[in-house]
Protein backbone atom coordinates (compact mmCIF):
# COMPACT_ATOMS: atom_id res chain seq x y z
CA UNK A 1 0.00 0.00 0.00
CA UNK A 2 1.22 3.46 -0.91
CA UNK A 3 1.97 6.07 1.73
CA UNK A 4 -1.12 8.04 2.68
CA UNK A 5 -1.36 11.35 0.83
CA UNK A 6 -3.89 12.44 3.45
CA UNK A 7 -3.80 11.40 7.08
CA UNK A 8 -6.41 12.87 9.42
CA UNK A 9 -6.24 12.06 13.11
CA UNK A 10 -8.74 13.10 15.76
CA UNK A 11 -9.66 16.19 13.79
CA UNK A 12 -11.92 18.67 15.55
CA UNK A 13 -13.26 21.68 13.69
CA UNK A 14 -15.50 24.51 14.84
CA UNK A 15 -17.41 27.05 12.78
CA UNK A 16 -18.16 30.31 14.57
CA UNK A 17 -17.27 28.54 17.84
CA UNK A 18 -19.75 25.72 17.21
CA UNK A 19 -18.01 22.32 17.18
CA UNK A 20 -18.91 20.42 13.99
CA UNK A 21 -16.18 17.80 13.60
CA UNK A 22 -15.63 15.89 16.81
CA UNK A 23 -12.65 13.67 16.14
CA UNK A 24 -12.36 12.55 12.53
CA UNK A 25 -9.91 9.78 11.65
CA UNK A 26 -9.43 9.20 7.94
CA UNK A 27 -6.58 8.02 5.78
CA UNK A 28 -6.35 8.03 1.99
CA UNK A 29 -3.37 6.28 0.39
CA UNK A 30 -2.08 8.03 -2.71
CA UNK A 31 -3.72 6.82 -5.91
CA UNK A 32 -6.94 5.71 -4.23
CA UNK A 33 -10.44 7.08 -4.60
CA UNK A 34 -12.43 7.29 -1.39
CA UNK A 35 -16.05 8.25 -0.97
CA UNK A 36 -17.26 10.14 2.06
CA UNK A 37 -20.98 9.69 2.53
CA UNK A 38 -23.41 10.75 5.18
CA UNK A 39 -26.69 12.49 5.84
CA UNK A 40 -27.12 16.25 5.70
CA UNK A 41 -25.46 18.01 8.57
CA UNK A 42 -23.09 15.19 9.41
CA UNK A 43 -20.04 17.41 8.78
CA UNK A 44 -18.90 16.30 5.30
CA UNK A 45 -18.63 19.77 3.78
CA UNK A 46 -17.08 21.12 6.96
CA UNK A 47 -14.30 18.60 6.52
CA UNK A 48 -13.85 19.74 2.91
CA UNK A 49 -13.59 23.43 3.82
CA UNK A 50 -11.36 22.75 6.80
CA UNK A 51 -8.97 20.77 4.62
CA UNK A 52 -8.90 23.51 1.97
CA UNK A 53 -8.18 26.16 4.60
CA UNK A 54 -11.29 28.32 4.69
CA UNK A 55 -10.62 30.84 7.49
CA UNK A 56 -14.06 30.38 9.03
CA UNK A 57 -13.37 26.69 9.71
CA UNK A 58 -11.18 26.57 12.74
CA UNK A 59 -9.17 23.48 13.55
CA UNK A 60 -9.55 23.11 17.33
CA UNK A 61 -7.98 19.68 17.78
CA UNK A 62 -6.27 16.76 16.08
CA UNK A 63 -4.07 16.91 13.03
CA UNK A 64 -4.08 16.74 9.26
CA UNK A 65 -0.98 15.63 7.45
CA UNK A 66 -0.91 16.18 3.71
CA UNK A 67 1.98 14.57 1.85
CA UNK A 68 4.03 14.84 5.03
CA UNK A 69 3.16 18.50 5.70
CA UNK A 70 1.00 19.73 8.56
CA UNK A 71 -1.93 21.55 6.93
CA UNK A 72 -2.73 23.54 10.07
CA UNK A 73 0.33 25.72 9.48
CA UNK A 74 -0.60 26.54 5.88
CA UNK A 75 -2.86 29.13 4.27
CA UNK A 76 -5.40 28.15 1.64
CA UNK A 77 -3.04 29.30 -1.13
CA UNK A 78 -0.12 27.27 0.25
CA UNK A 79 -2.28 24.14 0.49
CA UNK A 80 -3.24 24.53 -3.17
CA UNK A 81 0.39 25.10 -4.10
CA UNK A 82 1.25 21.90 -2.25
CA UNK A 83 -1.21 20.01 -4.46
CA UNK A 84 -4.53 20.05 -2.63
CA UNK A 85 -7.64 20.82 -4.63
CA UNK A 86 -11.24 21.35 -3.58
CA UNK A 87 -14.01 21.24 -6.17
CA UNK A 88 -16.58 23.40 -4.46
CA UNK A 89 -20.20 22.64 -3.96
CA UNK A 90 -21.14 26.29 -4.52
CA UNK A 91 -18.44 28.02 -6.60
CA UNK A 92 -18.74 31.78 -6.08
CA UNK A 93 -19.18 34.31 -8.86
CA UNK A 94 -16.34 36.81 -9.03
CA UNK A 95 -17.48 39.78 -11.13
CA UNK A 96 -15.20 41.07 -13.86
CA UNK A 97 -12.53 38.36 -13.54
CA UNK A 98 -12.39 36.44 -16.80
CA UNK A 99 -12.16 32.65 -16.77
CA UNK A 100 -8.97 32.81 -18.85
CA UNK A 101 -7.27 35.33 -16.57
CA UNK A 102 -8.30 33.37 -13.49
CA UNK A 103 -7.15 30.01 -14.84
CA UNK A 104 -3.79 31.36 -15.99
CA UNK A 105 -3.19 33.04 -12.66
CA UNK A 106 -4.12 29.83 -10.84
CA UNK A 107 -1.94 27.59 -13.01
CA UNK A 108 1.03 29.96 -12.62
CA UNK A 109 0.50 30.17 -8.88
CA UNK A 110 0.27 26.42 -8.29
CA UNK A 111 3.23 25.67 -10.55
CA UNK A 112 5.27 28.47 -9.07
CA UNK A 113 6.33 29.70 -12.52
CA UNK A 114 4.89 31.50 -15.50
CA UNK A 115 3.55 29.04 -18.00
CA UNK A 116 4.30 30.27 -21.53
CA UNK A 117 1.20 31.69 -23.22
CA UNK A 118 1.28 29.20 -26.06
CA UNK A 119 1.65 26.23 -23.76
CA UNK A 120 -1.20 27.45 -21.62
CA UNK A 121 -3.42 27.95 -24.66
CA UNK A 122 -2.74 24.37 -25.76
CA UNK A 123 -3.41 23.04 -22.27
CA UNK A 124 -6.59 25.05 -21.95
CA UNK A 125 -7.87 23.84 -25.32
CA UNK A 126 -7.18 20.21 -24.49
CA UNK A 127 -8.82 20.29 -21.06
CA UNK A 128 -11.77 22.46 -22.02
CA UNK A 129 -12.52 20.08 -24.90
CA UNK A 130 -12.47 17.20 -22.43
CA UNK A 131 -15.09 19.00 -20.34
CA UNK A 132 -17.05 20.09 -23.45
CA UNK A 133 -16.56 23.83 -23.02
CA UNK A 134 -16.97 26.14 -25.98
CA UNK A 135 -13.83 28.32 -26.52
CA UNK A 136 -15.87 31.53 -25.97
CA UNK A 137 -16.22 30.39 -22.36
CA UNK A 138 -12.70 31.73 -21.68
CA UNK A 139 -13.90 35.33 -21.96
CA UNK A 140 -16.80 34.96 -19.58
CA UNK A 141 -16.56 36.23 -16.04
CA UNK A 142 -15.81 33.71 -13.34
CA UNK A 143 -18.94 31.62 -12.67
CA UNK A 144 -21.11 34.63 -13.54
CA UNK A 145 -24.29 33.47 -15.24
CA UNK A 146 -22.99 29.89 -15.36
CA UNK A 147 -25.63 27.18 -15.15
CA UNK A 148 -25.32 24.72 -12.27
CA UNK A 149 -23.81 22.17 -14.63
CA UNK A 150 -21.32 24.67 -16.08
CA UNK A 151 -20.13 25.61 -12.61
CA UNK A 152 -19.43 21.97 -11.73
CA UNK A 153 -17.74 21.24 -15.06
CA UNK A 154 -15.66 24.35 -14.55
CA UNK A 155 -14.52 23.06 -11.15
CA UNK A 156 -13.36 19.82 -12.75
CA UNK A 157 -11.69 21.79 -15.56
CA UNK A 158 -9.68 23.62 -12.90
CA UNK A 159 -8.74 20.28 -11.38
CA UNK A 160 -7.56 19.07 -14.78
CA UNK A 161 -5.47 22.20 -15.31
CA UNK A 162 -3.96 22.37 -11.84
CA UNK A 163 -3.10 18.65 -11.73
CA UNK A 164 -3.36 18.32 -7.95
CA UNK A 165 -1.96 15.43 -5.92
CA UNK A 166 -5.22 15.20 -4.04
CA UNK A 167 -8.72 16.38 -4.95
CA UNK A 168 -11.78 16.71 -2.79
CA UNK A 169 -15.03 16.77 -4.73
CA UNK A 170 -17.65 18.35 -2.50
CA UNK A 171 -21.13 17.32 -3.68
CA UNK A 172 -19.98 17.73 -7.26
CA UNK A 173 -22.94 15.57 -8.32
CA UNK A 174 -25.62 17.74 -6.74
CA UNK A 175 -27.81 19.53 -9.23
CA UNK A 176 -26.36 17.72 -12.25
CA UNK A 177 -28.45 15.91 -14.83
CA UNK A 178 -27.25 12.53 -16.07
CA UNK A 179 -25.41 13.93 -19.09
CA UNK A 180 -23.55 16.55 -17.06
CA UNK A 181 -22.75 13.96 -14.41
CA UNK A 182 -21.25 11.69 -17.05
CA UNK A 183 -19.04 14.51 -18.42
CA UNK A 184 -17.85 15.41 -14.92
CA UNK A 185 -17.18 11.76 -14.08
CA UNK A 186 -15.24 11.26 -17.31
CA UNK A 187 -13.22 14.35 -16.47
CA UNK A 188 -12.31 12.88 -13.10
CA UNK A 189 -11.69 9.36 -14.38
CA UNK A 190 -9.33 10.71 -17.04
CA UNK A 191 -7.14 12.07 -14.23
CA UNK A 192 -7.35 9.00 -12.05
CA UNK A 193 -4.01 7.29 -11.51
CA UNK A 194 -1.24 6.53 -9.05
CA UNK A 195 -0.43 10.24 -8.58
CA UNK A 196 -3.90 11.38 -7.61
CA UNK A 197 -5.85 10.71 -4.46
CA UNK A 198 -9.54 11.61 -4.46
CA UNK A 199 -12.14 12.12 -1.77
CA UNK A 200 -15.65 12.23 -3.20
CA UNK A 201 -18.09 13.79 -0.79
CA UNK A 202 -21.65 12.88 -1.61
CA UNK A 203 -25.01 12.35 -0.06
CA UNK A 204 -26.16 9.98 -2.75
CA UNK A 205 -24.61 6.96 -4.40
CA UNK A 206 -25.35 8.07 -7.95
CA UNK A 207 -21.93 9.56 -8.76
CA UNK A 208 -20.27 6.41 -7.42
CA UNK A 209 -21.79 4.44 -10.31
CA UNK A 210 -19.60 6.57 -12.59
CA UNK A 211 -16.52 6.95 -10.42
CA UNK A 212 -16.06 3.70 -8.54
CA UNK A 213 -14.46 4.28 -5.14
CA UNK A 214 -11.88 1.99 -3.60
CA UNK A 215 -13.12 2.76 -0.09
CA UNK A 216 -16.34 4.20 1.31
CA UNK A 217 -16.57 6.07 4.61
CA UNK A 218 -19.75 7.08 6.36
CA UNK A 219 -19.74 10.23 8.43
CA UNK A 220 -22.27 10.79 11.15
CA UNK A 221 -22.39 13.55 13.75
CA UNK A 222 -18.88 14.79 13.09
CA UNK A 223 -17.11 11.42 13.12
CA UNK A 224 -16.39 8.57 10.73
CA UNK A 225 -19.02 6.00 11.71
CA UNK A 226 -18.10 3.19 9.35
CA UNK A 227 -15.55 2.39 6.65
CA UNK A 228 -15.95 -0.31 4.01
CA UNK A 229 -15.55 -1.27 0.37
CA UNK A 230 -17.64 -0.14 -2.59
CA UNK A 231 -20.43 -2.47 -1.46
CA UNK A 232 -21.00 -0.18 1.54
CA UNK A 233 -22.33 2.40 -0.92
CA UNK A 234 -24.75 -0.15 -2.33
CA UNK A 235 -25.85 -1.02 1.18
CA UNK A 236 -26.52 2.66 1.93
CA UNK A 237 -28.45 3.06 -1.26
CA UNK A 238 -30.82 0.38 -0.03
CA UNK A 239 -30.98 1.12 3.70
CA UNK A 240 -30.22 4.83 3.98
CA UNK A 241 -28.52 6.28 7.02
CA UNK A 242 -31.18 5.20 9.50
CA UNK A 243 -28.97 2.61 11.18
CA UNK A 244 -26.60 5.46 12.14
CA UNK A 245 -29.45 7.23 13.89
CA UNK A 246 -30.54 9.42 11.00
CA UNK A 247 -34.16 9.99 10.08
CA UNK A 248 -33.18 9.80 6.44
CA UNK A 249 -34.21 6.40 5.18
CA UNK A 250 -32.53 6.35 1.79
CA UNK A 251 -29.22 7.49 0.38
CA UNK A 252 -30.55 7.52 -3.14
CA UNK A 253 -32.59 10.35 -4.63
CA UNK A 254 -36.22 9.45 -5.05
Amino acid sequence: MADPILKIEGLEVAVDNTPILKGVDLEVPQGEVHALMGPNGSGKSTLAYALAGHPRYEITGGSVMFGGQDLADMGADERAQAGLFLAMQYPVEVPGVSVMNFLRTAVNATRGEEVPVREFARLFKEKSDLLTFDPSFADRYLNEGFSGGEKKRHEILQMALLEPAFAILDETDSGLDVDALRIVAEGVNAQRGPDLGVLIITHYTRILNYIRPDVVHVMFDGRIARTGGPDLADHLEEKGYVEFGSAETAAAPR
Binding site: G53, A80, P91, Q158, L162
Partner: peptide, 8 residues
Protein backbone atom coordinates in the same frame (compact mmCIF):
# COMPACT_ATOMS: atom_id res chain seq x y z
CA UNK B 1 -11.03 32.07 -0.42
CA UNK B 2 -12.06 30.83 -3.84
CA UNK B 3 -9.04 32.41 -5.52
CA UNK B 4 -6.64 31.45 -2.75
CA UNK B 5 -7.88 27.86 -2.82
CA UNK B 6 -6.49 27.82 -6.37
CA UNK B 7 -3.04 28.71 -5.13
CA UNK B 8 -3.23 32.47 -5.66
Amino acid sequence: FYLMSRGV
